[in-house]
Amino acid sequence: MKKRVASPIVLLGSRLLSPYIMLFGLYVIFHGHYSPGGGFQGGTLLAASLLLIRISSGRRISRIQFSDYLTTPLAVIGVLIYFGTGLTALLAGGYFLDYGQLPIPGLDAPDLRYWGILIIELGIGLTVMAVLVSIFDDMIRGED
């Protein structure tokens, strides 16, 4: 068995592509009202950009970018954003996830629906990204 060395082409290419994939994931999350996309798709794109670095550059460098004990708290924070928004609308007198009833001052109902959907999509995207990275980390933990 030869000694394995990291390929500079793969490393440089993934380092070049990863920020653009992450930017496109954020675009898919934040533009999810008007075009196809949303929290799930954008979250998988963010996870893809993180996993590209994780696969190509190994454990030590990728843990600097996004360390593995961050995944579960981020997933929990995303779920809390989702249910917090829904329950806030419920407590303010509407139904669950009734964005028009959110108690944000200075906004009327259409603007409230706009921002409410955006907050929900952010929570979903955060959860999907963290859970996918956590699945990858759990899979490779046995090999290291």
Binding site: S7, I9, V10, G13, S14, L16, L17
Partner: peptide, 16 residues
Amino acid sequence: LFIALSNPIGSHALAR
């Protein structure tokens, strides 16, 4: 642009 970047890199990674 992204296909022209990523497709040869993927093939290179496979062959390597």
